[in-house]
Design a protein around this nucleic acid. Structure first.
Lengths: 241, 241
DNA sequence: TATACCAATCTGGTTAACCAATTTAAACGT
DNA sequence: ACGTTTAAATTGGTTAACCAGATTGGTATA
């Protein structure tokens, strides 16, 4: 069979194509929740693509909760109605990779919440880990070295202490992407590192004291630079809260 | 070769095992950012697992931004330092499926933000879509039918109008999971549907009028039931904001 | 007629063979 | 001895064959 090497974006197009075809098939055949989808082989033949492509598309839809496949049995439509399903399909197909501003905006939102939750739910064990991350950060900064990574780990430790695995996951998803852009827009700039030590200590103290109000406030101060970058020109109103 | 059918959780264990082995390998060999990982074949042989397993593990690490593979070339360590990388590895390995409370908590957080952003950034086109979703919801409710799906689509339309693709994605991820548990904990219960119409209209009006403060307030009212479920016993303090 | 059983078929999952682009190093010419 | 060319080996990606559990339809038995 003729084989072509596809670029990443071409491959994504193929996958989106398959996803929309699956949606059309479901609608055309009036398949309802818990109904079985045609087998992967049938679909690959019907759509004229490889079975692997079909599998990847199904896995993506499974990730978003629209389908779920059972071994040796089949792929089934999740227990959400046709209308919601079509809406989800449209959204998934339209979804684009997030821009940096979206990531930062989301990170700030998440962190202002996780720090509050952490201050309410942290265990003694969490406190120890936070202290450890903080010490590592301070040591690096005082030695004059770059401490971007240690900074990151402190923030992730907060997310962990929030006891909300959903937010924790989302933090993990957006964090690396932010790091790679970090040279451009620092949260804890090398120039600000000494300032960062105190800010981090303030956050730690608030979590230790189980003071959510202070925790959020200190985090807000810590994010000041980023915050301003994010809400500089267009959306001025939302600065006050 | 001997073949065993693994359950989903067993398969996850295998994958986590591989991921931790990859981490150990990177540390043992002192691989640095942009260094090349051993080939998939080597890894599968070294770890005593199939190449597919290795591929899936790599794909997961790619999803979290730790690795990235280039066709016909190799898999490379992303441009984050060793310390951050190890922290990420630990977090990924420790990550567990979110409980329902986490999901709801996250949804509320996201929606209180997206509705504010939507009120600031919505276009006329967004407004039309919101109106359409709202009409569909109202029609269903007035006909005495269940309108859970239409409700959902209205909320997703708000996320779309927020122009933050990152939050939009996260909403899509957590929404289906919430729906499947919907029978237990309704946001827009059938009993409350008539009330829901007015609440939705209020939210729509706030978005239309570009009033973020009101938008968030109306959404908060709309989430009242869920809100109370989420912050009932343990974390009382954070109700006031 | 209803039920228990069995074999043929179908299913997603898994493995192994294959592909072409890339990288590497050896061979060649200057 | 150095720069260029070329061929062999390596790579992630892709395809096809295979596996065992699940399903299904028919048959035989109570």
């Amino acid at each position: 069979m003729r084989v072509e090497i596809l670029t990443k974006s071409e491959n994504e197009d193929v996958q989106k194509n398959i996803i929309s075809k699956i949606r059309d098939l479901i609608n055309y055949k009036n398949l309802e929740p818990d109904d079985k989808l045609p087998s992967e082989r049938m679909l690959s033949e019907k759509f004229g693509v490889s079975r692997n492509n079909v599998r990847e598309a199904i896995q993506k839809l499974e990730f978003f909760g629209i389908l779920n496949s059972r071994p040796q049995s089949g792929t089934f439509i999740a227990n959400i109605g046709a209308i919601a399903m079509n809406g989800m399909f449209d959204d998934i197909l339209r979804l684009e990779d997030p821009d940096f501003k979206s990531l930062v905006e989301t990170r700030i939102l998440l962190e202002l919440k996780t720090v509050k939750l952490a201050s309410l739910r942290r265990t003694e064990e969490d406190l120890k880990e936070l202290r450890g991350a903080l010490d590592a950060y301070n040591e690096k900064v005082l030695a004059g070295k770059d401490a971007v990574e240690e900074d990151l780990l402190f923030h992730l430790a907060i997310a962990k202490a929030s006891k909300n695995s959903s937010m924790n996951t989302f933090m993990l998803i957006i964090t690396p992407e932010i790091i790679t852009n970090f040279e451009k827009y620092h949260v804890c700039d090398a120039n600000q590192s000494f300032l960062g030590i105190q800010e981090h200590e303030d956050i730690y103290e608030a979590i230790k004291n189980k003071d959510p109000r202070s925790a959020k406030e200190k985090m807000k101060i810590h994010f000041k630079t980023l915050y301003q970058y994010c809400y500089n020109s267009t959306d001025k109103k939302e600065n006050k809260q």
